[in-house]
Each structure stands twice: as structure tokens, then as C-alpha cells.
Amino acid sequence: MQDTDPHAAASVFATLADWIRLEQAGGVGGRTARQLLAHLGSPAAIFQAGARVLAELVTPAQLRALCAPPSPELVRLLEATQAWLRQPSHHILTLHDPAYPALLAALPDPPLLLYIKGRIDLLARPLVAVVGSRNASMQGKAHAEGFARALSDAGLTVVSGMALGVDTAAHEGALAGAGSTIAVIGTGIDRVYPARNRALAHRIAQHGCIVSEYALGTPPVAANFPRRNRIISGLSAGVLVVEAAAESGSLITAQLAAEQGREVFAIPGSIHSALAKGCHQLIREGAQLVETVDEVLAALRVSPLAMPSTAAEPEAVDDIVLSALGHDPVCIDALLERVGGDAGMLGGRLLELELAGLVEQLPGGRVQRVCR
């Protein structure tokens, strides 16, 4: 919010301050806030309604919270938020703002506020989510980056959660493509979590945008990350799950997407890989199995344009170790039986292949080939 007229800017922020006050009212929550908005029209009308009117709509504890004067903590938050908004490319959208994303507004539980850092115009473009495991394999990261780049090249904006693993690879791939990316985070927008992604967050804010429903200063709280997943899926026309263990948080995003009427896609993996279990579960439950970006684009009715395919193309194999590996995880002893020779020779060759990015070491003394 940058306005050259200080009086107009003050008026706009006064309206926004009522939204923040409503969102921060202890014990009120999003559901009650939306019910009050439906009855009374605006946050300002809620705070002006008086105790007698509000008493018919909320519990006694909620009534006390709504009738209490702004606390010192709230005043400090409002001051910090106003200062934050004065910076370039910083925005806040309320649920009633015409620019609020329509798909998100249609959810049963849309956020009252969206804090945005970066290109707000991306929220009005065709969006697709790419999510997956934080502890992704090299193969999973390669899939995420390759699919995200191709989706970006096709004109889609890629949405993810800026976590380590698949999310990070998806953002990197989208930034490398012709399009861009949106990161939906589970902290205040003035925080970067995980700290390892600080440089990535800076690039996303510069070339894409970062979105949060949480007030400034909100620290990383475990419960907030599953909750933000409804925004990742709610913004998007479809959700692609790249790798997910059986109890992965990515399955929450996929389930929310299905409940929201979005397309759900899953990339299959080896039956021996724990990181493929979640994707296989999704496929059994009706998610579309995809092997190429073109399949995602066709389901979303997006023209593939002219771009390289991310299908795993047959590669010329003249290495005895790669040939023996196949495409499933295998333990070293079993691989040694396949190739013959001695363990020292095999270990040296595996190290060379790992340094070349063609082989990945897995837990439990297993190795797996990486296809790019």
C-alpha cells in the first residue's frame, strides 16, 4: 500500500486496522469472524455494533474480546504493519478486497487477510501447486525442478510452501522457467523459515511473491504449517505431489485439494521406496498418475506450447553398474552379485556416479539410479 496522499493512506489503513483487530481478537477465530461479517458487513460495523447486538451473535468470552479496547500489543502490531506496508511491493488484501483471489475466497475457510510480498499480479494468473517431501531424494528433487520449470514455461505460476526438499526444488525450477512462483508460508511474512532458504525467499520476493495469512512477527509454530496448506491448494487449479511418505504433510494438501474440487496429480515411484508410498496411496484414491508435464497441462486444459518434455527418455547405457542398478533401490551386496568383481571396484565406481549426479545413496546401505 503506497499512497502519495497521506490523508487517503491514513483512511485506508484505519479500515485495514479494523480487519487486523478482528483477526487478532482472542477466541473469535475465522469462522466466527466470517459469520459476524455476514451479519454486520464490515469489521468497522462489528466494533461499532455495541455489546447488546454482539451478545446475540457470539459467546460471552468472544464478546469481551470484541468489546475490549486495543491492547498495547495490538497497537504495536498495527504500527509495525503500517511501517511494513510503506515498503515497495508490500501489500495486504482483505477478504472483501476485489483483488482477493476468487478461488481462495470460495473456500469454506478463507483467510481474513493475505500479507503479500512481491508481485501481487501473480495471484490473478493460472496457478498450479507442486508439493512433496521435505526429505526428498535426489530423484524427487529432479522431478520437482523439471516439472516446475516446464509448467512455468507453459505459462503457469507454480505454488509451493518454501520448505526444504521438493518445495525448494519446485520454486527453483519455476524461477528458472519463463513464468514465476508463489511461496505460501506458515510464519509472519517478515520471517524466513527455514533460515536455509533465506536467499531463495529473497529471489521469490523479487521475481515472484510470498504469501502469508499470519500477522507480522508470527514465529514458526508447528500447527500453522498444515493449516497454510489449504491456501496452497485453494489458490491452485491443481496439485502435483512429487514424493510423499505414507504420513506426509503433502497428503494433507492433496486431500484438501480433492475436497476443494481441484485436480490432484501424483508421480509414481519404486514399490521399494518409502517416499513413493504416499503418491501410490493418492493414485489408489483417484489421483491422476502422471509421467509427463503434458499430462498435467492436458488435465488443466493448458496448451503445452513449445517446450522440452520432462518424460524420462531412454538413455544410452554403456556402464555395467548403471545397467545393473535398474531403477529401483538396491543394497550394495545385491548389486555386487549382479556386477561381479570386488567391493572396492564397485565402491569406487559408485562414488564416481554419485559425484556425477547419476546415483544416490539411500538409508540402509542402498543405492538408486537418478534419472534426469
Rank of each mutant, 00 (worst) to 15 (best):
S89T: 11
T157V: 15
S71I: 08
D109K: 14
E145F: 09
Q62R: 10
L63F: 04
N135F: 01
A148V: 03
A105Q: 15
A136P: 12
P111G: 11
P111H: 10
T81K: 03
S160K: 02
A102V: 14
F147P: 07
A105M: 04
S152P: 09
A102F: 07
I92Q: 00
A150N: 11
N135I: 01
G118I: 10
A142C: 05
G118K: 14
N135Q: 11
T81M: 07
L123H: 09
R119C: 03
F147M: 11
P101N: 01
V158K: 04
L85W: 02
F147C: 04
P101C: 01
S89G: 06
L78Y: 01
T81R: 05
L122C: 10
L77H: 13
V75C: 08
V130L: 08
H143G: 03
Q87G: 11
L85Q: 13
R149K: 14
K117M: 08
A68M: 07
V159D: 03
L103I: 00
A150R: 15
A136I: 11
P88H: 00
A83M: 04
Q139N: 12
L104S: 04
A83C: 10
P88E: 00
L93E: 03
A144I: 04
E73F: 00
R134Q: 13
S152V: 01
I92D: 00
A83K: 13
S160R: 01
A105I: 03
C67L: 13
A129V: 10
L66K: 11
R64L: 15
L107T: 13
V159S: 06
P101D: 00
R119Y: 07
S137W: 04
L66I: 03
L151C: 11
I92C: 07
M138K: 06
P108N: 12
A142Q: 09
N135L: 05
Q87F: 09
A129C: 13
A68Y: 03
W84H: 05
P110C: 04
P70Q: 13
S160C: 06
E145D: 12
I116N: 05
T94E: 02
